[in-house]
């Protein structure tokens, strides 16, 4: 089982310190939520883990190996997939193609094989298709496999993002505000889906504003404020922590 571990991670953009010595970990089978006011550095952590941003200090380790400094596609190949706060699907492709693209890192046929449609390549393509359908089925989108992504309703696009992340067979999935814009019943389905994902043995790191989702599904909660980790622990502990309350109240008076 995979173990994601951030130790004293710092990031700055020019003079701006976005993260300061943040440390936390995601243990096998866990659902952990990252919360904090806007600008606290939650999405920055996602970008650090997935290799989009370079860190200026500290270490990100996965399964005991350092992954900070690797290129995004290499990190994905290690088993860390993500979704986006603002949906970033390949809008012109079908739902199934979106998921199949994500399996890129798990297939190996080259251009020549693709053109010549070798037997091996066809078998691989079929396997990718089947796995893609399974991912769509998992999020309840099997019926929409051939729909072009941009034509799907908003709630389904959210699910497609998750399906695409699952498509690469990750061992850890990072969900960036998956409940944003969902109505209460959709949120409930989402919570149920997150728990199902965790049950398949995939670790979940969640950034979420919807506290009902956070408190219901998380095993642990990590609280960030201005790029600093101010508290971490079980949902109930965090809820009663004075520093957390202050951070949130402070932000509300902005």
């Amino acid at each position: 089982m995979a173990h994601l571990c951030l130790t004293d991670v710092s990031v700055h953009f020019g003079g701006l310190q976005a993260l300061t010595e943040v440390s936390f970990d995601l243990r096998p089978g866990e659902i952990v939520s990252l919360i904090g006011p806007n600008g606290a550095g939650k999405t920055t952590i996602f970008n650090v883990i997935t290799g989009v941003y370079k860190i200026s200090g500290g270490v990100v380790a996965y399964d005991g190996q350092t992954i900070s400094g690797l290129r995004p596609h290499h990190i994905l190949a290690r088993g860390i997939a993500r979704t986006f706060q603002n949906i970033r699907l390949f809008t012109a492709m079908t739902a199934l193609e979106n998921v199949m693209v994500a399996r890129h890192c798990r297939t190996r046929s080259g251009v020549i094989g693709s053109v010549l449609r070798t037997g091996c390549q066809r078998a691989e393509e079929r396997a990718v298709r089947e796995r893609g359908m399974a991912a769509l089925d998992f999020v309840g989108l099997a019926a929409h496999a051939d729909a072009v992504a941009k034509n799907l309703p908003y709630g389904l696009q959210r699910r497609l993002e998750i399906a695409r992340a699952l498509g690469s067979d990750p061992t850890t999935i990072l969900l960036d505000e998956p409940a944003a814009g969902l109505n209460p019943s959709e949120s409930r389905e989402l919570m149920e889906m997150i728990q199902r994902i965790a049950k398949t043995g995939v670790n979940v790191l969640l950034v979420e504003h919807d506290m009902s989702v956070v408190m219901n599904v998380s095993h642990r909660v990590v609280v960030l404020d201005h790029g600093v980790c101010i508290c971490q622990g079980a949902p109930a502990e965090v809820r009663s922590n004075p520093a957390v309350i202050e951070a949130y109240l402070g932000s509300e008076t902005d």
Binding site: V52, H73, C105, T107, R164
Partner: peptide
């Protein structure tokens, strides 16, 4: 084919396609 999908994905969104492993 998968390389074609990767090409179309990269054309649409280079950062995103890197994040899905391309």
């Amino acid at each position: 084919t998968r390389i074609g999908k990767a090409m179309r994905a990269t054309a649409q969104d280079k950062v995103m396609s890197a994040l899905v492993g391309i």
